[in-house]
C-alpha cells in the first residue's frame, strides 16, 4: 500500500516538475530564433538580398501542402490548427471542413500550411533536436487515443499560446507567425497593394495566434485582416486593435473558450479600458453560436458523421456559418 502511495506521490511530483520545466522553456524557441541562436536564425532575414532570394524561391515554387486554391482567388483564408497538433498536416476531419468551406466559397485560396505553435513554422516532428522524440510520442498517441501522450502535445502547444498572449514574448512570436503566413499568402498569389482582405481562421489555441499574428499581417500587407475564431481561446492584448473584425464562433456545448475569459483579466468587464473591451465596445467583436458544438471529440465543429436537425453535418454547419460571415462582409 505504501509503495503504491509513494509511487503516486512520485508521479504527481514528476508531473508538476515537468509542467514547470515545459512552461519555463516554452519561450526559448522563439527567443532563440530571434536572437540568432538557433539554426533557424533570423540573421538571414535581416539581410535583404538573402531574404529576397529566399522569398523569390517561395514565390516560384508553390508548397505542396497548400490545401485549396481556386483560379484567380477572390479572397485569401488562412486556417490555423488546434493545440493538439504536431504539424500543419490536416486531419481528415479538418480537410473535410475546408472542402465544405471551399464549396461554399469557390473563388478562394484556403491556406493551411502554417504550423501555428512554432514562431519559425517548424513542426514538432520537423528540424529540431527532439524531433525523433516527438515522432515517437506522436506515433504512441495515434496508437493509444485520449492518452497522456496527447496531453503532452496539448500542454506544449498551450504554452505557445501563452507565449503568443504574453506582452513580453508575444510581439516576437506573433511576428514569426505573421511572417510564415505572409510567405504562404505570397506563394499563393496574394498581391501586395491590392488591399484584398485576409481572413485568418483559428481553431482552439489557434484563435489567440490568429489574433496575435493579425497585428503584423495588417502592417506587412496594409490590408484589412479579419479573424474567425472557431472555439478559440483568446487573451487580451494590443493585437486586437489591428483586427478589422473578430468573429468568435462558440458552440453552445463548448466551454473551452472560457479559459480565455477567465485567465485574461483584460477580458473581464470591469477592466473597461482593456484592448479587448475597447474593441468590444467599438462593435469589432461578434460572438456567434453556430449550434450545439462541443470543443473536441464527437459533435465538435469538424464532425463529419453526426448531423444536426437540418440534415447538415457539424462540419458543414461550421463551414456554412463562416461562408455567410465572409459573404456578408464582402457584400
Amino acid at each position: 500500500m505504501n509503495l503504491v502511495f509513494e509511487s503516486i506521490v512520485f508521479l504527481v511530483i514528476l508531473g508538476i516538475v515537468l509542467f514547470f520545466v515545459m512552461a519555463l522553456l516554452s519561450p526559448f524557441e522563439s527567443l532563440g530564433w530571434w536572437a540568432g541562436w538557433s539554426k533557424k536564425s533570423i540573421d538571414q532575414e535581416f539581410d535583404d538580398d538573402r531574404l529576397e532570394q529566399q522569398q523569390t524561391q517561395i514565390l516560384v515554387h508553390n508548397r505542396p501542402s497548400i490545401s485549396l486554391v481556386g483560379s484567380a482567388p477572390k479572397r485569401f483564408l488562412v486556417y490555423l490548427r488546434g493545440i493538439a497538433t504536431a504539424d500543419a498536416q490536416l486531419s481528415r476531419r479538418e480537410q473535410g471542413f475546408l472542402d465544405h468551406l471551399f464549396s461554399y466559397l469557390p473563388n478562394s485560396a484556403i491556406i493551411s500550411d502554417v504550423f501555428p505553435y512554432s514562431a519559425t513554422n517548424n513542426p514538432l516532428t520537423g528540424e529540431r533536436t527532439f524531433a525523433r522524440l516527438y515522432q515517437l510520442l506522436h506515433n504512441a498517441r495515434e496508437r493509444y487515443r485520449n492518452s497522456l501522450f496527447s496531453l503532452l502535445f496539448v500542454l506544449r502547444n498551450l504554452f505557445q499560446v501563452a507565449v503568443s498572449g504574453d506582452g513580453r514574448y508575444g510581439p516576437i512570436y506573433n511576428a514569426g507567425i505573421a511572417r510564415a503566413i505572409g510567405y504562404s499568402l505570397l506563394s499563393n498569389g496574394y498581391t501586395i497593394g491590392c488591399e484584398q482582405p485576409i481572413w485568418v481562421m483559428g481553431w482552439s489555441g489557434g484563435g489567440q495566434i490568429s489574433v496575435g499574428s493579425a497585428r503584423y499581417l495588417h502592417r506587412i500587407f496594409n490590408a484589412p485582416v479579419y479573424v474567425v475564431s472557431i472555439g478559440g481561446v483568446i487573451l487580451d492584448g494590443p493585437a486586437i486593435a489591428d483586427v478589422e473584425h473578430l468573429y468568435h464562433l462558440e458552440g453552445s456545448r463548448d466551454n473551452f473558450p472560457r479559459i480565455g475569459d477567465f485567465f485574461s483579466p483584460g477580458r473581464w468587464k470591469i477592466v473597461k479600458r482593456s484592448f479587448w473591451n475597447q474593441a468590444w465596445n467599438a462593435g469589432r467583436i461578434t460572438v456567434i453560436d453556430p449550434g450545439p458544438m462541443k470543443h473536441t471529440g464527437g459533435q465538435d465543429y469538424f464532425d463529419h458523421k453526426n448531423k444536426l436537425s437540418d440534415g447538415k453535418t457539424y462540419a458543414q454547419r461550421t463551414a456554412q456559418v463562416i461562408a455567410e460571415i465572409v459573404r456578408e462582409v464582402e457584400s
Binding site: I42, F46, D48, E52, A175, L186, I192
Partner: peptide
C-alpha cells in the same frame, strides 16, 4: 521588444513591396 519587432515588420514590408 516592440521597437525591434516593428522594425523587422517594416523591413519585411519594404522587401515584399520591392519584390512585387
Amino acid at each position: 521588444v516592440d521597437e525591434v519587432v516593428n522594425r523587422f515588420i517594416s523591413e519585411l514590408r519594404s522587401i515584399v513591396i520591392r519584390m512585387q
